[in-house]
Amino acid sequence: MTFLRATLAVITKDLAGELRSRELLSAMLVFAVTVILIFNFALELDVKTRGTVTAGVLWVTFAFAGSLGLNRSMAIEKDRGCMDGLLLAPVDRSAIYFGKMIGNLLFMLLVEAIVLPLYSILYNINLFQGGFLGVVFLGSLGYVSVGTLLATMTIQTRTRDVLLPILLFPLAIPVIIAAVKASMGYLQGLEAESIRPWLNLLLVYDTVFIAIAFMVFDFVVEE
């Protein structure tokens, strides 16, 4: 109960702060929309090619926008020493991780909820399919779970803005590849059998990294 209450407190705090400042969401959203527009004008794709590149374009956009959000989310904790304030609370420190991770996931999903309809209109492609949206959720969860852990580590360094993408992207390669392949499968209307291995990889990645973060967060945040 204490764990859940602490997790909810962190999520609520992040949402309330962002609702007021809109720094994190606006940065992510402007970046994501700009990238989508650039791709739209740069690629000038025909209908057939669109189906094959859509997944890649979307996940590259989500990954870069996500890393912006992760950096900002942890910078808020570094500012005014707030991370120490969180660590002084008499709760399991993994509750802080889960609070931050779920908050980051909500921000990323919100940006995706705005970007996907925009992409649908610009590229004239239907993205609102149950399977595809499920992949977006699982991919975002995996990306944010490892990203939140790494952002907690890099926030202690002077070069955190540069260091987070350098550490995050190599570790996120499996989740990005699996998400792109599974998304492409759904958008091209492939059979479930050919998509399932990528979905399994996404599920395993999410489970493994959430479990690792749960176990190591206490050590990561200590000096």
Binding site: R5, L8, K13, G81, C82, G85, A89
Partner: peptide
């Protein structure tokens, strides 16, 4: 101060109060 600039004084205290149960 270990306080959040984008929250009010009351919201900050309420947040820490919830963390302490």
């Amino acid at each position: 101060p270990l306080l959040y600039g984008d929250l009010t004084a009351e919201e900050n205290l309420r947040f820490y109060g919830r963390l302490y149960g």
